[in-house]
Amino acid sequence: MIKCALIGAGKMGISHLSILGAHPDAKVVGVADNTRVVTDVLQKYTTFPCYTDYRKMLEVAKPDAVFVAAPTKYHSQFVNELVSRGIHVFVEKPFCLNLQEGKELVKLVKHKGLINQVGYHNKFIGTFREAKSIIKSKYLGTLQHFVGESYGPVVIRKKQNNWRSSPEEGGGCLLDYASHVIDLINDVISPITRINGCIMKSLYSTSVEDSVYSLLEAEGPVSGVLSVNWSDETFRKMSTSITIIGSNGKIISDASELKVYFKSDNCPPGYSKGWNIRYVTDLTEAVDFYLRGEEYSAQVDYFIRAVKGEVPNIINTFESALLTDSIVGQIKRYSNQYHG
């Protein structure tokens, strides 16, 4: 049994908590949050011990692993403290607001030999995994261009007052939404190496951007476009997709459907020349407990198994998330430089 605790019981935190509560190899030993209503409800209706002071929780509950789902600005402080105490860490995305602090955490966690994972859940979605596997086995030939997109209805009117509307706390479409797409491009295609142009626009928010459009270059070199807008109400929920064009074909993938076009018969087993369509129903492994998408359960399960030593700690490491933080930072700097 892995003794797990949670810091930050907001939307993502509660989701992790529920998945952990149902996990046969995890025991929830503590929940820390400073919103009284949340801890009161949990205290009253669950068996999880609740704390308003996370340090007290660490001392009393002595967890093996901690899930950090507090606002992004607290990530580096909390993670640093946890890793220093020898605790395995799962932290929500994005990793850190300050790149230097992130670098030190990567170094520290390696030095301590602890399991570390960041919540970029798209990597646990069957369609994107399959897209990656086709690309890495070179079936798409030489990669030429990609388009990474994400749209959703987070801010659809002028009225916002929480940490997501504050740039200092990690708010904004770039950190909250675009980071997912950047992380996916880094993983599925190749690491982004250059920002060739960027526009960030506020549509409803007063202090943060609601959309991010950028011209990118990834290792290869492969050119690409990033187009992200969290103020698009034509989408019912966040919808992320990537299109990749190679010398031998093309891939269009979102979280539910993978469309692959091959120019010739040189394709992976199960595929043929022309269009191929595969659905997430065939590509996603079943989970033992389902809450809101297999990927959310799968990433928690992967982390628990990594702590138990059953799987290697290679998906969504601090190091891979640091690369995403660094691209996010470069896009921000580029935008500030040219557009103030």
């Binding site: 509660i14 529920s18 998945i19 509560g21 149902a22 209706y45 669950t46 999880f48 407990f289 809101r292």
Partner: peptide
């Protein structure tokens, strides 16, 4: 289901 399963994972039986 999102609410049922959230409560189920949290084991909030009384709810």
């Amino acid at each position: 289901n999102v609410v049922t399963d959230l409560l189920l994972g949290l084991n909030m039986k009384e709810v």
